[in-house]
Nucleic acid binder design. Structure first.
Lengths: 200, 200
DNA sequence: TTTATTATTGATTGATGAGTCAATCAAGAA
DNA sequence: TTCTTGATTGACTCATCAATCAATAATAAA
């Protein structure tokens, strides 16, 4: 163990530990000792690198959002129209994102965002980003229908997350994706001149 | 102030106070003094009537669920088919249920239910009840489509709750109801021999 | 009036957990 | 070797909060 360059390693380990800890308890319960313990360091070191618990949790949420962004960006970049929307759905509900501990963290942060202004801002940026990404893929629909469908898809994804967190209802990633795509198909079919309501 | 028969009054006041407190903070933060203070009594009295914080919170969630059940039961009893589904949607997203503090409580309890077994059971009963109520109204659809649609509606409602809690996206009760009914209409239209996709 | 019962609280206890700090360790620089 | 600097922690402080309890007030029952 060299004595230099530990910072990025510790930061990352602490963030991973925070996600893991939040995944097991409900964010409220996580303590600095729990997180630090999982990361294999003392609470003092966690404070040293992050300043305080709030900062660590904020960094953790930012990490999760960044991670999601990094998965989404390249996935949708070359696509447009419905395929772009499908890609957004697929990534948001991918096994990677649909992991119980990630879901739990989302949920916990949703709650926390109600009180923490910085966290609230972070979320609003994410929500807005998702909405405009969806809209750009729904350009084929009349504007009001596109907006409604974008909101519907976003709400469906969040709802499926919630159900997943509770451990009830839709079980796996695949089923969840199918459910949302089904919604998308119906919305698209309504504005397709005619032919069967199914396609793809 | 007579010295007898205070119990039901205090219990109710404490539960209302808990909802209000949870509405302002995120359930994690609520303290017994906060709740007791809002109810105009000492923390000792709150403990006297409820035993402990967990019991008070459990009673609070049960109250919210009971309230919802009391609104839903008479509303759907005389109805069947799509109208029954519409009634379920309308009540779940009614201004009464769509109040920010109620939503915040839901969210907080969703999180808590992950750790508290009793609370988890309570939720599972609610989820199952909602699902079978929806299914009974969707009997006109083929079984797989009915199941999928019921899950979709439930997820949409939860998702809209989440968005509401975050203070973003769909604004009011009416818009939320319209969004979910739109989903229902599409699901129904797909299995209607033909004619326009809209009705009602 | 006395007695039992319900309602109610102030004060206290004990636990938990965030944040701080002075001290130690290790490795590269002088 | 000495000096400096990042890494690291144990021990401590301070605040918060759930829970308890003994004491008091007020009323109904005897």
């Amino acid at each position: 163990m060299p004595k230099i360059g530990m910072e990025p390693i510790r930061r990352r380990a602490l963030i991973d530990a925070a996600i893991s800890a939040i995944g097991e308890r409900g964010a409220l319960n996580v303590t600095m000792s729990d997180i630090a313990g999982r990361a294999g360091v003392s609470t003092a070191l966690a404070h040293h690198y992050f300043g305080g618990k709030d900062d660590l949790l904020f960094a953790t949420m930012r990490h999760i959002l960044t991670q999601l962004g990094n998965e989404i960006r390249p996935a949708i970049a070359p696509l447009s129209g419905p395929e772009r929307v499908r890609a957004i759905i697929a990534v948001n509900l991918s096994p990677e994102q649909f992991r119980p501990e990630i879901i739990a963290a989302w949920l916990a942060f949703y709650v926390e965002a109600r009180r923490d202004a910085a966290l609230g801002r972070l979320f609003r940026i994410y929500v807005h980003r998702l909405h405009s990404d969806l809209l750009s893929g729904l350009a084929g629909l009349p504007r009001p229908a596109a907006i409604r469908t974008a909101r519907g898809i976003a709400a469906l994804i969040d709802g499926l997350y919630l159900r997943r967190a509770l451990g009830e209802g839709v079980e796996d990633s695949r089923t969840a994706i199918f459910l949302v795509e089904d919604y998308l198909d119906m919305a698209l079919a309504r504005h397709t001149p005619h032919g069967g309501p199914f396609h793809g």
